[in-house]
Simulated assay, not measured.
Amino acid sequence: MAGSAAEEKTFRRFLELFIREMRMPLQESDPVPTRPLSDLVSEDEVEGECLDLCLQHLYKYNCPCSLAAALARATADSLLQTDLSIHHLHKTVEDGADPLPQMESVKLARLVFNRLFETCCVWQKELPYRRRPQPYYETSIHAIKNMRRKMEDKHVIIPDFNTLFNIQDQEEQAFFAVFDGHGGVDAAIYAANHLHVNLVRQECFSQDPNDALCRAFKLTDERFVKKASRENLRCGTT
């Protein structure tokens, strides 16, 4: 059940319109609604990519933030519980001493959007999400690329951080970040998609978020350096 009758009605109305517009499921030859910028995804990137694809797509349709976070979480959890190894490329890329299984980003996106559609269909019939009381954050965004050929910066606004990561035993939290890209947008995109995931997965996150953030920065940097080496990327972000 949603937090109130009016809110539940709003959520159900959104789900009804969204399902009508999505025209799913996507077939193997169908283009995806939002195309990932990277060609390949490794196993440790799946959760961040899934959450980002869901949120981007839901916000295009003006989905309420709290519902978008809950749907993204449910979709990611469902996808992560499946065996994705059947979608791995036959040729693995060497990452240090161990082979690194990867899958095509477009194939992952197709799985994500189809699973999101399935989740919306189930929730339209029986809405399991109950929004928790949380602070309201009034935010605005302004971005300019000046003389650059394209925008190289990224921002992240997650007002429903606890919902997005199903955090039950902590006070309500939000996540805001700006990533200044240098020499390209790839590093900024990677950080925007994965830093907050790496943050919440730190064991010390609930007790010492400052230390968790430092560890998350280090882990995100290490993983992007490896990705940049594999894919011949020459960019960074601060």
Rank of each mutant, 00 (worst) to 15 (best):
D83Y: 08
I86W: 01
D98W: 11
A216F: 06
T238V: 11
D95I: 03
H90T: 10
S85D: 11
D30L: 10
R20V: 08
D160C: 15
F117P: 03
D153Y: 01
D208C: 02
N193Y: 06
E118P: 00
H182S: 07
R215V: 00
Q168R: 13
I141C: 07
F117R: 00
N162Y: 05
E203C: 04
L79A: 04
F161W: 06
K150S: 05
R223M: 13
H194R: 13
V93K: 04
H87A: 10
Y137F: 15
F113S: 03
E49M: 13
W123C: 12
Y61V: 06
A72P: 04
V197F: 07
E45L: 12
V32Y: 10
Y190G: 08
T34R: 14
C235F: 08
F165M: 12
D180T: 05
A97H: 11
F176R: 01
C214V: 07
P101E: 06
Q202M: 03
L71N: 03
Q134E: 06
V185G: 01
L55S: 02
A68P: 12
T82S: 13
C120R: 02
M147Q: 07
Q168Y: 12
S42K: 06
E21H: 13
E47I: 02
R230M: 15
E21S: 15
T237S: 14
L79Q: 03
C63P: 11
F205I: 11
D221F: 12
E43L: 12
R23T: 11
F224R: 09
P25C: 05
R13A: 14
N62G: 10
N232H: 06
M103G: 06
K60P: 01
M24E: 06
F161Y: 15
A212I: 03
K9P: 03
P159D: 13
D160S: 14
T237W: 02
Q168A: 11
D221P: 07
F11A: 15
H57I: 02
I19M: 04
D83W: 05
L100T: 01
V122K: 12
R132N: 06
E222T: 12
K154G: 04
K226I: 07
K145E: 00
Q81R: 14
L67K: 09
D186G: 00
H57N: 04
N62V: 10
V46N: 00
W123F: 15
A69P: 14
D211I: 02
Y190A: 09
T34Q: 11
T92N: 02
E21G: 03
D153Q: 04
Y136H: 13
H87W: 07
Q134G: 05
A109H: 01
K107C: 03
H57K: 08
V200D: 03
A70D: 11
L15I: 08
S229N: 13
Y136K: 13
E7W: 09
V106W: 00
R110Y: 04
N166C: 10
R110E: 04
R23K: 15
D208M: 01
F179T: 04
K107P: 02
K154W: 05
C121H: 00
P159N: 14
E49N: 14
D98Q: 13
L116E: 05
R223H: 09
P36F: 13
Q81T: 05
M103A: 01
H142M: 09
L127S: 07
E118N: 01
H90A: 08
D186R: 10
Y61A: 15
P64S: 13
L84W: 05
H196Y: 14
A76R: 01
F165K: 11
